[in-house]
Write a protein that binds this DNA or RNA. Structure first.
Lengths: 341, 341
DNA sequence: CTGTTAGCGCTTTCAA
DNA sequence: TTGAAAGCGCTAACAG
């Protein structure tokens, strides 16, 4: 537990090795034009003192960057986002970069503060799952040469690289499959339409119904649940209807899990047989979905790949050093995995 | 997508506001001894130029620190660890600090490299879920005045603040409860005994059996599964025994989920009724545990609180500025939630 | 091959 | 209340 409370500097290493700081610097940067035996002495001194080159000092020199990527996501604890973060981390680590991770809790103000803080720490770029609908802070970042990648969601009017899922297409295919299976009363559970993915998935869902001439019953639309508990409550309300839905379309894993929990709870009280509960279509796969008492189909995708792709878009731009051109937009495909009655 | 590729410095702000850099610095540090109207002018310039104080440059000045906490965990995608990371992030954010997050993938070399990198970036402290059994790199960090908190696991011979779960006690209580319920053939599924928690939970389990005079059948001990798939395979092997266990003790969520998946799969083929499958005791709660076809009891705890506690131990030490004294050891309690046949 | 000088962006110290 | 000088740790550019 003893603390020397002092971290050696390049000067001390130099002194220890009997050379100038420049020789230490050169040795640590690959050793060009440093005699092998001198290098050895330097490295020995480095090891002796436990020296670590100060990256912050380095980063203020012209031509040097921080090696930091700022990552702002809405909920670290949600497996979808943590897996996304893993993908970013892995890809960044391949180039020796590290991630500064911040949680926005779906709060635009916190996102603003986070981005501002990240810029102060001289991140090379930002990867953001926008909680905000406002482009200003991110546009400002780009104007200062700090590229932004928006992942999973897109902000209107932000001209930045984007990677999103095929939300509309996936939802459309999922809902269509339910209709194909004969469902006409399909409940919708999703997060608020003010969120990009919520809006797109809802749109795909609605489009499928319209195409097939199925009337849209407002009582069957519950958009606004951000948590599992809220989703459970919304499900409860829907199942209480005199003419309840025969299928539930869940626009994300929080809502699917909430629906499952509620159905499972009601099954426990044994009022109705399983066959009278709605089957489920979930946008997002999740662990243990297979234990569902009612058939559950999944609109599946890979959040890790989403993270990797976001990182690659950013790293591309960093290595292309300079403007790099047009904002790119990637839409990752989703895969429908059916499991119906 | 236009990039000015330039971030304003304090000098430019000063020029823009018609003052010296010092006045800008003072204004940004609270405005002591700066006339209000001058402050206004400075802040206007800051806003105009989109200036963000360079924290890296700041941090190299004596007396200033980076405001960075290095967090190294073994698997970001595991909800247990991501929730842990959330706890750390929240607590760090309360003091204006950010976290540098790295994934070790349970690899000691990667942990070493990560810690080294973190030290180079002048983190104020480290929070580590050790993948390594070697104390050297972390001890070295402490010697240089960078405190370390080890979370969830403890490394022998590392004199650092520690927060762990009541692994032994929890496992002991869980196993005892199974024995109380009449089980004598209890299968053990856990990760390798070379990992701290694996060892402790196994020890608590074994102790419970020994206390009750229940012989330890080596065929019922499977320690070494790190992934859900490995756990599934181990479960399969155990259920194939001619005299299979009547209960499974799962030492973490990966193993519990693997066991559940295997049991669920076998149920699908309808060879045996549910009642003939083992019930489960899981160290770690997890989402949708309640959907288990067999009764599942849980040794529950709060990974977010684990993260918060780890962060507080570290922040305490940072704010106590100086050695701060003895290494502290916190053992967070676990809670048994029974659900048996 | 090695060292000296200068300066990155910032703030502490001292002077005005 | 403000500014000038100096230096944090590091490394390009230049000298030797």
């Amino acid at each position: 537990m003893s603390a020397r409370a002092h971290r050696p500097t390049i000067k001390e290493v130099a002194q220890h090795a009997g050379v100038s700081p420049m020789t230490v610097s050169r040795t640590l940067s690959g050793g060009l034009n440093v005699k092998p035996d001198v290098q050895e002495r330097v490295l020995a001194a480095v090891a002796d003192l436990g020296y670590h080159r100060n990256e912050n000092a380095r980063s203020i020199r012209p031509g040097h960057s921080s090696g930091l990527i700022g990552v702002a996501i809405t909920n670290i604890a949600n497996p979808y986002y943590s897996t996304f973060a893993l993908g970013v981390e892995e890809e960044a680590a391949l180039t020796g970069r590290r991630i500064l991770l911040g949680n926005t809790s779906e709060d635009a103000d916190r996102e603003n503060a986070l981005v501002s803080d990240f810029l102060g720490r001289r991140v090379e770029g930002l990867i953001v799952v926008p909680a905000s609908t406002d482009a200003d802070h991110l546009a400002a970042s780009q104007q200062q040469g700090v590229p932004v990648v928006q992942a999973s969601r897109r902000i209107d009017g932000l001209d930045a690289d984007t990677v999103v899922l095929a939300d509309d297409d996936g939802a459309h295919r999922g809902a269509s499959a339910l209709i194909d299976a004969g469902h006409t009363r399909i409940g919708y559970l999703g997060n608020t339409l003010s969120i990009f993915t919520g809006r797109r998935r809802h749109a795909g869902f609605v489009r499928a119904l319209e195409e097939r001439g199925i009337p849209l019953d407002p009582a069957l639309i519950a958009a606004g649940q951000q948590t599992v508990d809220q989703a459970r409550e919304a499900t409860r309300a829907m199942l209480r209807m005199k003419n309840p839905p025969t299928a539930l379309f869940c626009a994300n894993n929080r809502n699917a899990i909430g629906a499952l929990k509620e159905i499972n709870r009601q099954l426990g009280s044994g009022i109705k047989p399983v066959s009278e509960y709605p089957e489920i279509m979930s946008f997002d796969d999740f662990e243990l979905a297979e234990l569902s008492p009612v058939p559950i189909s999944v609109i599946d995708h890979d959040p890790r790949e989403l993270g990797r792709t976001a990182a690659r878009l950013l790293l591309d731009r960093l290595d292309a050093s300079g403007d790099g051109g047009e904002a790119r937009e990637v839409e990752l495909p989703v895969q429908l995995r059916m499991h119906l009655r």
